[in-house]
Write a protein that binds this DNA or RNA. Structure first.
Lengths: 234, 234
DNA sequence: CGGAATCCGGATGGATACTG
DNA sequence: CAGTATCCATCCGGATTCCG
């Protein structure tokens, strides 16, 4: 009876809404699209989502043909991947992102949305897509202002062509130390502020070998959804 | 506390989801984008949505700067309109529609989504956008198969350049009688079947003056989201 | 560890009735 | 007509637990 379900309309927007207009669902698809495959990875990108709801959403999406869950050959659990129909949802996510970047820009970096864990996790995911020198093995430290003390230090560890986020000093050589307010680096990530401008304005401090200082802007990534129009980025 | 609200993420998809990933919300925006402005018009395009929830969604959208409600000078109630930020959401709706048209096409015309009221209401809205002869005054009757008897007859009345949906014979000259299964006309509307093909295959019957029979395919509209790729439309 | 199942309290949505 | 008010079913968040 009151069973909440479809909208009973033939309109294609209605059909798409049956899938996407549910709490967390677009963000689950986003995580899968951006490359997470394991339950734990998804949770890390969706820290405020309960594990029960994530499991439920993955089921719904699998049932709808958006996600396919293959049992992990190694160990327990599954690999969750988008099907072709799932990847075809990207234009929806992209247009949502583009809308918010132009019509809700300042809301993105309101205090309650700043999250250093999430930022580092996203940076790592984009860095490892790009090509870093495979032979070198070093760490870059990040020190954030404007966050709780327990969340103010992070390290990116580059080793064997892999990139890892560490919450403690990994003990490798610190090639570069990055210091900024969490909002500054988030705005750089979102394309609201050019990295070079943040450095020039001394909102972002780089300390280390001249070589690594100069290399940093070349490998430091921005979001796939970064604004191309960079507001007050001069 | 348990207060359900934002997702606590700086990602623009997250921000857009806070607005759009709620039940009925994309469909409310769709109705406004397609030209409905009064509460009653919106309800007619969203027949399964409770009036309480519609009022709540309009409030939320107004608060978010997507909708503006101006008190109606004449009579009670308001005119609801999209703001510029609201109209900028159209690419999101469009990409949702495009996705469903290609990846969930057959679900659109499942029995539970066929609705002759909704179909006629949508047709009317698109017809009046197009130019019909302003001087003429006539009616076109629609007889649907595959629907409850009480919903099987409709009339489109063209008068003074206005178009109206009638649930009873308006008494004007019936220039043309259209008969088809509800699914057939819905598929034509969605672009899954070409009108000419439906006529040729005798899934859609036209009776009336030769002049009106010939004119019908010229003014009969399809959805703004009609598929350009028309499957088995030959 | 990876993930599913359960339980609880608060929030949300659907149905119906009601009001100016 | 244009919404409110109310009641109840469902959904969601958080915590805990369980299983392999």
């Amino acid at each position: 009876m009151g069973k909440r379900q479809g909208y009973g309309q033939f309109c294609p927007i209605s059909r798409a809404s049956e899938l996407l207009a549910n709490r967390w669902t677009p963000l689950v698809v986003r995580e899968l699209y951006f490359g997470s495959t394991r339950f734990a990875e998804l949770r890390r990108g969706l820290p405020r989502m309960s594990s029960a709801l994530l499991a439920q959403r993955l089921n719904e999406l699998e049932h709808a043909g958006i996600v396919i869950a293959e049992p992990a050959d190694t160990g327990a659990g599954h690999f969750y991947r988008l099907t072709e129909a799932g990847r075809a949802l990207f234009p929806v996510l992209e247009s949502m992102g583009r809308w918010a970047q132009t019509h809700s820009r300042d809301d993105l970096t309101r205090a309650e949305n700043l999250d250093p864990d999430l930022l580092m996790w996203n940076i790592r995911r984009r860095v490892s897509d790009d090509s870093m020198p495979e032979d070198s093995c070093f760490a870059v430290s990040f020190h954030f202002l404007g966050v709780p003390a327990s969340r103010s230090y992070f390290w990116l560890l580059f080793r064997d062509g892999e990139t890892e986020v560490c919450l403690r000093d990994p003990g490798y050589k610190i090639a570069l130390a990055v210091t900024s307010h969490i909002r500054t680096l988030t705005r750089v990530w979102l394309g609201h502020l050019k990295l070079e401008a943040a450095i020039r304005k001394r909102e972002l401090l780089l300390e280390g070998d001249r070589r690594h200082v100069l290399a940093f802007p070349r490998w430091f990534p921005v979001s796939l959804l970064a604004a191309s129009d960079v507001g007050d980025a001069r």
